[in-house]
């Protein structure tokens, strides 16, 4: 083809399903239990974490700022306006299937929104709430 660009079709990128959300949750739960024996993941704690206005970051005060009040709904990045797929695995099967990716986003977003890295218990609580698919 003449010109400076060639036109190609997008091929679907294969999904690497390294783990299930349940397996990733179990791993955080096990880690939390090592720190605090008797720990049990809590939907209520997760919901609190998800909706809490930490106010550390002016533009990103809470998880719900970008991810909306309901994890089953699509969100939007508050700074760039980029569309964000739902967090809930019931609405988006790609979520929580790659442990490294999950850990990367917890690290980034906890640092940004909470102002520090989250504990394994907080991650397990968060996932337990999000996986309810509200």
């Amino acid at each position: 083809m003449k010109g400076t660009a060639i036109i190609l079709l997008v091929l679907g990128t294969p999904l690497v399903q390294a783990a299930t959300p349940g397996e990733i949750l179990a791993s955080y739960r096990a880690e939390a239990t090592r720190v605090s024996p008797g720990y049990r993941p809590s939907v209520a704690q997760g919901a609190h974490l998800y909706g809490r206005q930490f106010g550390v970051s002016e533009k990103m005060p809470a998880c719900s700022g970008c991810h909306t009040a309901r994890p089953s709904q699509p969100g939007r990045h508050v700074v760039t306006d980029k569309a964000i797929k739902p967090l809930a695995p019931t609405a988006n099967a790609e979520r929580f299937t790659d442990p490294a990716k999950v850990e990367k986003w917890f690290r980034r977003n906890c640092t940004e929104v909470v102002g520090r890295e989250c504990s394994a218990a907080e991650k397990a609580d968060f996932m337990t709430f999000v996986m309810e698919g509200r």
Binding site: A5, L8, L9, L11
Partner: peptide, 29 residues
Amino acid sequence: MNTPRMLNILLVCSLLPLSVAVKADDLCL
């Protein structure tokens, strides 16, 4: 592969030198 659809078409840069490939309207991928 499905039927080609406009939305699925990407502008991919050719292997021409960058000074040629950079066009104002086509910021090719």
